[in-house]
């Protein structure tokens, strides 16, 4: 029996399309939280978590500031690379309205997290993370995962894994330039 090559192509195209659609659905349903498409451009899910200094920090209390929200863990080598950059960026852009917030997503005790943060010279709040907070951000299954919020608290970007410093600077500048607080000043 002679096979028509066009039929072969159409079958391959249909299989590829089904693969794309299936994987997309699987990815979106993987976490109980919202998918990437649902998160970006919307208000960041609010949460209140204890910080290393013993006080609670509520994300929505930071409205008016651009926020870099970094999910990390003490066991994560790439996270360790980014932290000195965050220290510098907080110093550089803090006076212009940037607030960096670290959320520790590991099983280590608070003492270990505090010790690690002290060794890294962290100058921004470190919160003790919860699985439910990670889920509300689509499931934090890769560390580091970093979100960027504009001054209105809307999510404008997300980065998985170690990025270059320039990527952070680009997102920070964009986050600081967006939001009603900025428009009101103009």
């Amino acid at each position: 029996m002679k096979r028509n090559p066009l039929i072969l192509f159409f079958v391959a195209a249909i299989v590829a399309a089904m693969l794309f659609a299936g994987i997309r659905m699987a990815r979106d349903n993987r976490a109980n939280g919202p998918a990437k498409g649902q998160l970006m451009g919307n208000l960041a899910p609010d949460f209140e978590l204890p910080a290393l200094d013993g006080k609670n920090l509520k994300l929505s209390d930071l409205r008016g500031k651009a926020v870099l929200l970094n999910f990390w863990a003490t066991y994560c080598g790439p996270c360790k690379v980014e932290m000195p950059w965050f220290v510098e960026l907080q110093k550089e852009y803090g006076p212009q309205g940037l607030q960096i917030v670290g959320v520790a997503m590991d099983d280590a005790g608070t003492e270990d997290i505090a010790k690690f943060a002290k060794e890294m010279g962290v100058n921004y709040p470190i919160l003790i993370g919860k699985e439910s907070v990670g889920q509300s951000y689509g499931g934090v299954s890769v560390l580091p995962t970093t979100f960027f919020l504009d001054r209105d608290g809307k999510l404008i970007a997300r980065e998985f894994g170690l990025q270059s410093r320039s990527v952070f600077v680009e997102h920070i500048k964009k986050a600081m330039s967006q939001g009603q607080a900025v428009q009101a000043q103009k």
Binding site: L19, F20, R24
Partner: peptide
């Protein structure tokens, strides 16, 4: 050519799928 294009289509879909899903 059509056979090769079909094969490439399927391979690229597979690579994309792996990249998209990550190490779950």
């Amino acid at each position: 050519k059509i056979f090769l294009t079909s094969a490439l289509l399927l391979i690229s879909a597979g690579v994309w799928a792996q990249d998209e899903l990550g190490p779950q």
